[in-house]
Write a protein that binds this DNA or RNA. Structure first.
Lengths: 248, 248
DNA sequence: TAGTGGTCTAGACCACAGG
DNA sequence: CTGTGGTCTAGACCACTAC
């Protein structure tokens, strides 16, 4: 929104050129001075646009070298990162959900630690089977602090995106951490997804925070293999925001 | 390396302050003008340092707001991303490897596509069990184009990092894409890792490229659950370089 | 050696959050 | 309102690559 920003225009223009195939992987992008002329701007906005593309994993650059196009890697908005419904829509697929339970209950030690509350403090938990184009795809276990979860208790969890609902209620969700690993299906997972107990599932645990750093959500999503995978692009000389760590 | 760079100094100083606990999650960082004074620099380098911290998921900022510290999230160098040995060392653990086979063989259709060569063209494949502090942790299947793989054929693959060796040979590895999902152990995996066939494993497939975009490596690593997981931090208003995609 | 991207300066205006 | 971070300008020098 807001007025047009040069660096966004420039980045969008280059992104489009890459996606259209006007410049193909391995080709150089126009030089910065050329882009300055073409967009009638100074070097600042051009460099900011380049930094964006670099962060998205679309291009690689370096001293003396021309900036070159890498293989196209899809990126994802924050909404798509945190909301299954939004992710489905961005992928052109139909999300669905079958609520198993919505409950206010006391937090066990692990959940309390994740949400930054005392053990036994009340939290709101949602347990849903999620569908992809009508087929079982993921088992979702959401847990919210009471302050946030109270907006969930009065919401029809079969109707769609809880995240969307929370944003509309003015809940401040600013950042999230996801931890990805593999687990075997437990009995609930197995029954809902229609696979044997112990079958491999891709587990994504998510913690979401306010701007001030207060935890608001701690969740556990388990995907059927083949329905979802994660892709990340790393470039030499960049620190990767994704890290592999030892242990569960 | 090279002369001291202000933006790196500033970023390093702030990173250290965060890790030392001088500023704790939720606290504001010094304002940009304050940092300009303290480091005797103009705003450019300060903003570049902030952009780095933001990309690393360490801080969150926005118009009018102070830049605030998020929970500390480990980041990873490109070397750590691509090299198991380097990752272990960064984690303070001892890497190990037991080579099962090193072979020059013709590529099947899938591998040929991944490496950008013709089906049946010769490639170099390495199959190793990797250890973490002496215990089985991961099954590694590496595949290189012939031009790169010829440096591997004469290398003692039980001695350590192939990536390190390739870099020393002057191989140009500039960027890599990792795709993460879950699979069941096949017979080879099961035997080497000491788990039943079908047990959940975390699979990381990696494709590595030169600056010009030529594929050089296509690999498949399968981790025992509990030995490795991935963590990523996402911030509202940023595009995430990690994306979740439909399908295997 | 010519041109590139990386770094830096010293200014400026604006949108927005907070008191 | 004041101060913040976001955006932008118009210059400059340097390290490096490719020729």
């Amino acid at each position: 929104m807001s007025t047009t920003q040069q660096h966004r225009d420039i980045a969008a223009h280059l992104r489009a050129a890459i996606r259209n195939g006007d410049v193909t992987p391995g080709d150089p992008l126009p030089s910065e001075s050329e882009l300055c002329e073409r967009f009638g701007s100074s070097r600042g906005p051009v460099r900011q646009a380049m930094a964006t593309l670099r962060a998205e994993g679309l291009v690689s650059s370096g001293r003396g070298r021309r900036t070159t196009v890498l293989d196209m890697v899809p990126t994802q908005s924050f909404d798509g990162v945190i909301s299954y419904s939004e992710w489905c829509r961005q992928s052109g697929l139909e999300p669905g959900q079958v609520t198993q339970s919505v409950a206010r209950r006391p937090a066990d030690a692990a959940l309390a630690a994740a949400l930054g509350v005392a053990t036994g403090a009340p939290v709101v938990s949602v347990f849903r089977l999620r569908l992809l184009d009508g087929e079982p795809a993921m088992v979702e276990r959401l847990n919210y602090t009471l302050e946030v979860g109270r907006h969930v208790l009065g919401f029809d969890t079969d109707s769609g995106s809880i995240y969307q609902h929370l944003i509309e209620q003015g809940v401040d969700i600013d950042n999230a951490t996801r931890t990805i690993d593999a687990v075997g299906a437990d009995e609930d997972d197995a029954q809902l997804l229609g696979v044997p107990v112990g079958s491999p599932l891709l587990r994504v645990r998510r913690r979401a925070f306010t701007r001030a750093g207060t935890p608001v959500e701690a969740s556990d999503d388990r995907y059927l293999p083949g329905t979802a995978s994660f892709t990340v692009n790393s470039i030499r000389g960049n620190q990767s925001p994704l890290s592999m760590v030892v242990g569960a």
